[in-house]
């Protein structure tokens, strides 16, 4: 079984601050980490490999320094790491990123064996779009399983997979086919601690580095800034609301009484409302 896990090196948002005047993110001196959501995907992939055998390849697109994140992933026990790095990728939005990653995954398939599952995290903590995973699935024509809370079963003979997907108001149990793309939810597992052997192995092993050309990308207009239709018009810090919502205990009194009281309270504060309400209801 071959599993590809897409990870992203992000600034540690816990240590990031926004410039009070320009509203831009102050990245200087902020340490980078693996996007925390990706760690749930990586751990899930490692667990599947441990049970079913095979290999885990981690993939990231980023500047040369993103190699640090890949080495960390190798330290957790990933078998191979691929760094997609090229100045043509600079300024990519989610459309261009999912294009480049899908091309790289196709190339990984040709080079190291076709992946059965591609994992991504639910979203990244710096962009919060949750679009790259689905974008990859669409381009590679993979079954798309998003917000997965649990992988219930995988049958490598029938190539069937069953997962629990968290949806609004409940959990969906989905059955699908391999190959598929899974975006993994947070708090579904805990990333393992690397052993001494893995730390040594990670520091000693080579990270595969591909340029756009190496990954077989011909159409550079679909990469980086040129391939990114998203435009940031304005960045602003939202102002916090002054008032907080009140919580009312409904255990002791009837809902109708509470509602009547609240309406009476509002009308005492804003007497004009009573007039408007009467006008609108036509009485």
């Amino acid at each position: 079984m071959h599993i590809v896990v897409c990870i992203k090196q992000v600034p540690d948002s816990a240590q990031i601050r926004v410039h009070p005047v320009t509203n831009t993110i102050m990245r200087q001196g902020v340490p980078t980490i693996i996007n925390p959501y990706d760690l749930f995907a990586l751990e899930e992939a490692l667990k599947l490999r441990d049970v079913h055998g095979g290999e885990v390849t981690v993939l990231t697109m980023g500047p040369p320094m993103a190699e640090d994140s890949l080495r960390k992933a190798l330290g957790y026990g990933a078998d191979r790491a691929v760094l997609l790095t090229d100045r043509y990728f600079a300024g990519s939005d989610t459309l261009a990123t999912s294009f480049a990653l899908s091309q790289a995954i196709a190339k990984i398939g040709e080079t190291f064996g076709r992946p059965d599952i591609v994992f991504t995290g639910k979203q990244t903590i710096d962009g919060d779009t949750a679009q790259v995973g689905p974008g990859i699935a669409k381009r590679l024509d993979l079954s798309q399983l998003t917000y997965v809370a649990k992988i219930a079963s995988i049958d490598l003979d029938t190539r069937e997979i069953e997962v629990a997907r968290r949806a609004e108001g409940g959990t969906q149990l989905l059955k699908s086919r391999l190959p598929c793309l899974i975006t993994m939810l947070e708090d579904t597992n805990e990333i393992r601690r690397g052993s001494l052997q893995q730390a040594l192995c990670a520091a000693r092993s080579q990270v595969v580095k591909w340029t756009a050309a190496d990954a077989g990308i011909d159409d550079l207009t679909r990469c980086g800034l040129r391939g990114s239709p998203t435009v940031v018009k304005r960045v602003f810090a939202p102002t916090a609301r002054a008032e907080r919502a009140a919580q009312i205990d409904t255990a002791e009194r009837g809902l109708q009484d509470i509602a009547d009281e609240l309406i009476a309270d509002i009308l005492t504060r804003r007497p004009a409302l009573e007039h408007e309400l009467a006008f609108n209801s036509g009485t």
Binding site: R71, G75, R193, G194, S195, L196, A199, L200, A202, A203, R204
Partner: peptide, 22 residues
């Protein structure tokens, strides 16, 4: 031999995590 700063840092980092967390 092949021991470099990367490797030293990786070993110390993981040992530190184990000592601190476990």
């Amino acid at each position: 031999g092949d021991l470099g700063e990367d490797l030293v840092d990786a070993v110390l980092g993981e040992a530190g995590r184990f000592a601190t967390e476990e």
